[in-house]
Deep mutational scan, measured.
Amino acid sequence: MQGVVKVNSALNMRSGPGSNYGVIGTLRNNDKVEIIKEVDGWYEIRFNGKVGSASKSYITIVN
């Protein structure tokens, strides 16, 4: 499943599904990500070869 980031500035990509996990990357508006699965309001995603988590509130699913 594919998604597109929708933010005003930037979205942190984290090492796990929650804001208490470390930041491993930064996503910008309109970045395209691969959604692997949903976990507690977060998506596990793949972006630029990295796997991490980002809040699903800022990612829109595209077909």
Rank of each mutant, 00 (worst) to 15 (best):
M1V: 13
M1I: 13
Q2K: 11
Q2A: 11
Q2Y: 15
Q2V: 14
G3R: 03
G3K: 02
G3T: 02
G3I: 05
G3Y: 05
G3W: 06
V4P: 02
V4Q: 07
V4C: 13
V4A: 04
V4F: 07
V4H: 05
V4L: 11
V4E: 05
V5P: 02
V5G: 04
V5S: 02
V5E: 02
V5R: 01
V5K: 02
V5L: 04
K6S: 10
K6D: 05
V7H: 10
V7P: 02
V7Q: 03
V7I: 10
V7S: 13
V7A: 11
V7R: 06
V7W: 05
N8R: 13
N8D: 13
N8G: 12
N8W: 10
N8V: 12
N8E: 13
N8P: 11
N8T: 13
S9A: 11
S9T: 13
S9P: 06
A10C: 15
A10S: 14
A10M: 13
A10Y: 15
A10G: 10
A10N: 11
L11R: 06
L11P: 01
L11E: 05
L11Q: 09
L11S: 04
L11N: 02
L11F: 05
L11H: 05
N12Q: 14
N12D: 14
N12H: 14
N12G: 11
N12W: 10
N12F: 13
N12M: 13
N12S: 12
M13H: 03
M13N: 01
M13G: 01
M13W: 08
M13Q: 01
R14N: 03
R14V: 05
R14I: 04
R14A: 02
R14P: 01
S15E: 11
S15Y: 06
S15T: 08
S15C: 10
S15M: 08
S15Q: 08
G16A: 03
G16T: 02
G16S: 03
G16K: 02
G16F: 02
G16M: 03
P17L: 03
P17E: 03
P17F: 05
P17K: 03
P17T: 04
P17Y: 03
P17N: 06
P17C: 08
P17G: 04
G18Y: 01
G18F: 01
G18W: 00
G18P: 02
G18Q: 02
S19D: 14
S19F: 15
S19H: 14
S19E: 15
S19Y: 15
S19A: 13
S19C: 15
S19Q: 13
N20G: 12
N20T: 10
N20F: 10
N20R: 11
N20L: 07
N20W: 14
N20S: 12
N20P: 03
N20K: 11
Y21W: 09
Y21Q: 03
Y21T: 04
Y21L: 03
Y21P: 02
Y21V: 02
Y21A: 03
G22A: 15
G22C: 13
G22M: 13
G22F: 09
G22Y: 08
G22R: 13
G22D: 15
V23N: 03
V23W: 05
V23S: 06
V23R: 05
V23M: 04
V23A: 05
V23I: 13
V23C: 08
V23Y: 05
V23L: 06
V23T: 07
I24R: 03
I24V: 11
I24S: 03
I24M: 06
I24W: 01
I24L: 06
I24F: 00
I24T: 06
I24Y: 00
I24C: 08
G25P: 02
G25K: 05
G25T: 09
G25A: 13
G25F: 08
G25S: 07
G25L: 08
G25V: 08
G25N: 05
G25Q: 08
T26Y: 10
T26M: 11
T26Q: 12
T26F: 10
T26P: 04
L27R: 01
L27W: 01
L27T: 00
L27M: 06
L27V: 03
L27Y: 00
L27H: 00
L27G: 01
L27S: 00
L27E: 00
R28F: 12
R28Y: 13
R28W: 08
R28Q: 12
R28D: 06
N29Y: 09
N29H: 09
N29V: 07
N29R: 09
N29W: 08
N29D: 09
N29M: 09
N29T: 07
N30S: 07
N30Q: 08
N30M: 10
D31G: 03
D31P: 02
D31C: 07
D31V: 06
D31S: 07
D31M: 06
D31Q: 08
K32E: 10
K32T: 12
K32H: 11
K32A: 10
K32Q: 12
K32C: 13
K32D: 04
K32P: 08
V33T: 01
V33K: 00
V33C: 05
V33N: 01
V33W: 03
E34Y: 12
E34D: 11
E34S: 07
E34P: 01
E34G: 04
E34A: 08
E34H: 10
I35M: 02
I35Q: 01
I35E: 00
I35N: 00
I36E: 02
I36N: 02
I36W: 05
I36P: 01
K37C: 13
K37P: 01
K37L: 08
K37N: 12
K37D: 11
K37V: 06
K37M: 09
K37F: 09
E38C: 09
E38A: 07
E38M: 07
E38L: 08
E38P: 01
V39Q: 10
V39S: 09
V39P: 02
V39H: 11
V39Y: 12
V39N: 08
D40R: 09
D40A: 09
D40N: 13
D40T: 06
D40L: 08
D40P: 06
G41I: 04
G41E: 09
G41C: 08
G41W: 05
G41P: 01
W42A: 01
W42G: 02
W42C: 04
W42M: 02
W42L: 00
W42H: 02
W42S: 01
W42P: 00
Y43E: 00
Y43K: 00
Y43W: 06
Y43R: 01
Y43C: 04
Y43G: 00
Y43M: 04
Y43P: 00
Y43V: 04
Y43H: 00
E44W: 15
E44H: 08
E44K: 08
E44V: 15
E44L: 15
E44D: 06
E44R: 07
E44C: 15
I45Y: 01
I45G: 00
I45W: 00
I45E: 00
I45A: 01
I45M: 03
R46F: 11
R46S: 10
R46V: 12
R46I: 14
R46P: 00
R46A: 08
F47E: 00
F47M: 05
F47V: 09
F47I: 08
F47G: 01
F47D: 00
F47T: 03
F47Y: 10
N48F: 08
N48A: 11
N48K: 12
N48T: 05
N48H: 10
N48M: 12
N48S: 07
N48R: 12
G49T: 04
G49A: 05
G49V: 04
G49P: 02
G49S: 06
G49H: 06
G49W: 04
K50E: 08
K50S: 09
K50N: 09
K50I: 14
K50L: 15
V51G: 04
V51N: 07
V51H: 08
V51M: 09
V51I: 13
V51L: 11
V51D: 06
V51C: 09
G52K: 01
G52A: 06
G52Y: 06
G52T: 02
G52L: 04
S53A: 14
S53M: 15
S53P: 02
S53W: 15
A54R: 02
A54S: 04
A54Y: 03
S55T: 08
S55G: 10
S55N: 14
S55Q: 15
S55H: 15
S55L: 15
K56F: 05
K56W: 04
K56R: 08
K56G: 06
K56T: 10
S57H: 14
S57C: 15
S57L: 14
S57W: 13
S57T: 12
Y58D: 10
Y58C: 14
Y58W: 09
Y58I: 05
Y58A: 12
Y58K: 08
Y58Q: 09
Y58N: 11
Y58V: 07
I59K: 00
I59C: 05
I59H: 00
I59P: 02
I59Y: 00
I59F: 05
I59G: 00
I59E: 01
I59D: 01
T60C: 14
T60D: 11
T60N: 11
T60S: 11
I61N: 03
I61L: 11
I61S: 04
I61H: 04
V62Y: 09
V62A: 09
V62N: 07
V62H: 08
N63P: 12
N63H: 13
N63Q: 13
